[in-house]
Amino acid sequence: MSDRTLRLIGAAVALAGVGVAGYLTWAHYSNATVVCVRGGGCETVQQSSYAEIAGVPVALLGLLSYSAVTALIASDSGNARLGAATLACIGVLFSGYLLVLQLFVIHALCIWCVANDVVIAPALALVTGLRLRGSPA
């Protein structure tokens, strides 16, 4: 797979992350307008004490991180690639932790969080990691 393709995939995945984290951030602050999809759980997760760190919504941290990764992918220097991969690495590790919390501590799964934890964060870590092999455009 060419570096250009990886870059496009990385950008698309990061933007998907911006979308999901943005939605969850909005849901966090608007509180009452969450749409419950079949399977429920989102509100339980959003209302849990783990939804915030020092008063900052975890979703907002995700939104800022994905926005930063998107900007770094757009910039695309050698250091930007390393920065994107580092942020993605933090993201995938923290997402894994959040998934464990949902499964074993909160006992509720939020489909938006799961999409992030299982698909978006690992995919972004993989793509940004693979791009470290090549040279910047």
Partner: peptide
């Protein structure tokens, strides 16, 4: 740095988690 930052986040999440109920 990535692993350390993730560890800080995890610890922060346990120690400084919110109080929403």
């Amino acid at each position: 740095i990535g692993v350390a930052a993730a560890a800080v986040l995890v610890i922060g999440s346990q120690v400084l988690r919110g109080t929403k109920s």
